[in-house]
Write a protein that binds this DNA or RNA. Structure first.
Lengths: 162, 162
DNA sequence: AGAGTAAAGGTCAGTAATGGTCAAAAAGAC
DNA sequence: GTCTTTTTGACCATTACTGACCTTTACTCT
């Protein structure tokens, strides 16, 4: 355990035993371990990646921070299986659609969430890809908002439709 | 919450819980928080922008004031306004993000939904656009699933975090 | 009225405080 | 000795804060 990366890793994991989410300051932590700030990024990239079940968010500037969130996957095995084998690097609409459908059946996601996902991966949205990024963003945002605002969901946040 | 900007922001938002419109004096407020007056402008510009649903009016000279008015976008009929004028045919990430933020503040969507939307319109996802449609679809699906599976949402479908 | 002055608020560029990236060097593993 | 992992540092990007200088409005004095 002589490695800095492991020292910092275990330090952060200790903090994460208490709560699911911690906020640190890169400079401060680097100072604590007497290393360069970018070492912290290395730790985060190699030990707190999405594959390992963490989500990193951060903000620069005065009062900046790095937030580490621990994922509590319902069934972690399922999740990594889904992401790696079920989806992979590229996926067709049919396969994506079928996958989402299965997730609902297994109660891993709600119907409401399923509809959002279905819309996000649908042909009509992705076609906007050709017109550029901001165009795609606008299409996506509008379509997803419309799904959210569907009347049947208004008083039915969990999406258990009828 | 060490940031001045956040302190002032929450102070003003607290006042805005009561009414839709408040009037302040720049110098007085700056004095209250022991900062330079232009700091107030910074807060207004970054936290009470139009995208976030506020209108700022002011008047200089003796008896001058700054008025902050909260915009109302409750009802679904306002939704079409948001879609057409607030989004349009193309939208930047910053604007999309501010819009989503504002929808949460007005309780039009839950935090959970907001995080999904934020991820959907985020740079890292849309970059996948270049690699083709099926690639983008895979990135989108994976990222959104991870958002759904975040711990803070497990027993908190309405997303009222903290 | 008009001039002068006091009392607001506005702008903008510069500085400070963070965090991010990337490639090269150093250290370990086999 | 070669390959992988770790560590470092130079350079970049973003957000917050400050201060000097500018504009507008109200009030007062003649």
């Amino acid at each position: 355990m002589a490695n800095l990366v492991e020292l910092i890793e275990s330090y952060l994991k200790k903090l994460l035993e208490e709560t699911d989410e911690i906020e640190i300051q890169r400079k401060e932590l680097a100072n604590h371990f007497a290393c360069v700030p970018s070492q912290i990024n290395y730790v985060l990239q190699t030990r707190f990646s999405i594959e390992r079940g963490y989500i990193i968010e951060s903000r620069r500037g005065g009062g900046g921070y790095i937030r580490i969130t621990k994922l509590h996957l319902h069934r972690p095995e399922d999740m990594s299986m889904i992401l790696e084998q079920g989806i992979g690097e590229a996926i067709s609409q049919d396969h994506a659609s079928a996958l989402v459908h299965r997730l609902v059946e297994r109660n891993l996601i709600t119907l409401r969430e399923a509809k959002l996902l279905q819309k996000a991966v649908s042909q009509d949205i992705l076609n906007a890809c050709m017109f550029g990024e901001t165009y795609l963003r606008a299409s996506l945002l509008k379509a997803l908002l419309l799904v959210i605002m569907q009347p049947s969901f208004q008083n039915d946040q969990n999406g258990k439709e009828k």
